[in-house]
């Protein structure tokens, strides 16, 4: 908002002056609001993990079998990609706060690049699974036909595609808002003095990473009974 905003002063009965917090220029308010939004994401993914845990307890062996068939190498590479993207995002914010706008923009571009790499690997992974006949809507994941997988595996893959898909959707949104952030920086609306938007987008990106920190082991690692499985993937 306008940078010239001057907070109002309230005067009490003794004549002492108290600064009034307006909605303008409320950095802490912006941060608080964004954290509250992230709690809604926590509740959303929390509910999905609840579903996942419930079916895991019902169909233990099916889940482990299904998990063992996922490609752990690609999943692991994606984990590392996200790790580095979190770093570039953090360093970008740091550069912004220390006054290096150009460096900050470079770091945001790096983050976008890593996000695209993540999506690319994800696409390779899903394509391979599709070719194995495992994908939403394919016969293997429907009931009552000759290709039908057991209940536990249907549910595992149903949740797998839903949750990694939703996570991927968050990545796409993240790329979108990072491009928007770059536009705002170029327009001079986000500056070292006024970087709440950058701060919140960095928080968002860390949240996306945070979700992956739990999604990854829950889907990829529970069936990793031996080192060989790690190397061989499928």
């Amino acid at each position: 908002m306008s940078h010239e905003y001057v907070p109002e002063i309230a005067v009490d009965r003794e004549g002492k002056e108290h600064e009034v917090q307006g909605w303008q220029d409320d950095t802490y308010g912006g941060k608080l609001g964004f954290w509250l939004f992230m709690f809604t994401e926590v509740m959303m993914f929390g509910a999905m993990f609840l579903i996942l845990t419930y079916y895991f307890s019902l169909h233990h062996q099916d889940f482990i079998n299904a998990s063992a068939s996922l490609n752990r190498v690609l999943g692991g590479v994606n984990t590392v990609v996200l790790l580095f993207s979190a770093l570039t995002m953090g360093l970008g914010l740091l550069k912004m706060r220390s006054g290096d706008v150009k460096g900050a923009k470079l770091m945001i571009w790096a983050t976008i690049l890593l996000a695209i790499v993540f999506l690319g690997i994800k696409a390779v992974e899903w394509t391979a699974e599709y070719q194995h006949g495992v994908f939403l809507g394919l016969e293997a994941l429907q009931a009552g036909n000759e290709f039908s997988k057991p209940f536990g595996e249907i549910l595992f893959f149903g949740m797998y595609f839903t949750m990694t898909g939703l996570h991927g959707f968050h990545i796409i949104i993240g790329i979108g808002i990072m491009l928007w952030l770059l536009k705002r920086i170029n327009a001079g609306k986000v500056t070292p003095h006024h970087h709440i938007l950058h701060f919140n987008i960095a928080l968002y990106w860390d949240l996306v990473h945070l979700i992956w920190v739990f999604v990854f082991p829950y889907f990829y690692m529970i069936g990793a009974g031996d080192i060989a499985g790690v190397v061989n993937g499928h």
Binding site: D26, T27, H193
Partner: peptide
């Protein structure tokens, strides 16, 4: 608020690498 510019890049970025 923390809209300061006193953040020193050189002294802070090491922390990010350590966490990484």
């Amino acid at each position: 608020m923390d809209t300061n510019t006193n953040v020193n890049y050189k002294s802070e970025y090491a922390g990010y690498w350590k966490v990484l």
